[in-house]
Design a protein around this nucleic acid. Structure first.
Lengths: 143, 143
DNA sequence: CATGAAAAGGATAAAAATGTCTTTTAATCT
DNA sequence: AGATTAAAAGACATTTTTATCCTTTTCATG
């Protein structure tokens, strides 16, 4: 349903949400251990997200990845869409290829409702939602 | 969440449920086109299920795969368990490795409820459930 | 009991996902 | 300007999943 890559990406962004801002950028080197993702792999994922303007980054000294206020309004679905693509997440849990939520197979009703709800959660949950109301931030990490 | 293999297996078993019984065994050759699964690959999957007594088979002339009445009481979860293993299906949608339903990570509550329901469906739905009340059997295929 | 039909099983191939490494580019700081 | 730092980019490697092929074993039947 979600690839490892998407999960890694979400964890990375979550870490940035808690620990970074415009004035406090973070290097991959300082993230990967906390979230248990291989350094180079995480770098690639964050680069991909940055290229799609889901997160922000600057190069050079004092550089690193961070989340702007705008970035924080992104949903989990935005992340998944970049990493896995729309198709993978929406594809049928039981069917193959041609079956998806918009064009369901006959088995779809069996599991479709649950899956639809799951997708709604991804679509409706922003990074900000996840982090705020989370006073005890320690609680998140290590994931 | 579910591997292709599991989906293939479910489709195959569903076909058997509709078209086979003790007196009417079916060869892989006569299934694979209907459900859009490569012949040799489907054979492997059905063999694996047969070995685990999820479905039945006999060799030789007039042989083939079929479902006994007992087989029909198997759940979708039984199939998935054989093909994917318990671990894969129960692993966390967001976390990695050490996080699963029995030992949830902090992100789990976000998506855990939906996933739990999905698993319950797999656990509670038997092959028989799926097929009966399905008068218009044509409707199932091709999947 | 010989024969042929079918599953079973082993070995291999192809593709996709995951993970690593090296070079290039850009920002910052003397 | 030049040195240094860190992301960006892309080539390369590994592992897992998916898929195929081919031989062996089994068994119903004539």
């Amino acid at each position: 349903m979600l690839s490892n890559s998407s999960k890694y990406a979400i964890k990375g962004v979550l870490y940035l949400a808690v620990n970074s801002n415009e004035d406090r950028k973070i290097m991959v080197r300082d993230i990967f251990e906390m979230i248990h993702v291989p350094e180079a792999y995480l770098a690639k994922l964050l680069q991909e997200l940055s290229r799609h303007n889901i997160i922000s980054s600057t190069r050079g000294p004092k550089g690193g990845f961070y989340l702007s206020d705008e970035d924080r309004k992104r949903t989990l679905m935005d992340i998944v869409r970049v990493i896995d693509g729309e198709k993978r997440i929406k594809s049928c849990v039981l069917g193959i290829k041609d079956c998806d939520m918009d064009n369901p197979c006959v088995l779809h009703k069996l599991v479709g409702a649950n899956k639809a709800k799951f997708i709604k959660v991804l679509q409706n949950t922003t990074i900000l939602d996840l982090v705020e109301g989370k006073q005890d931030l320690e609680e998140f990490f290590p994931i």
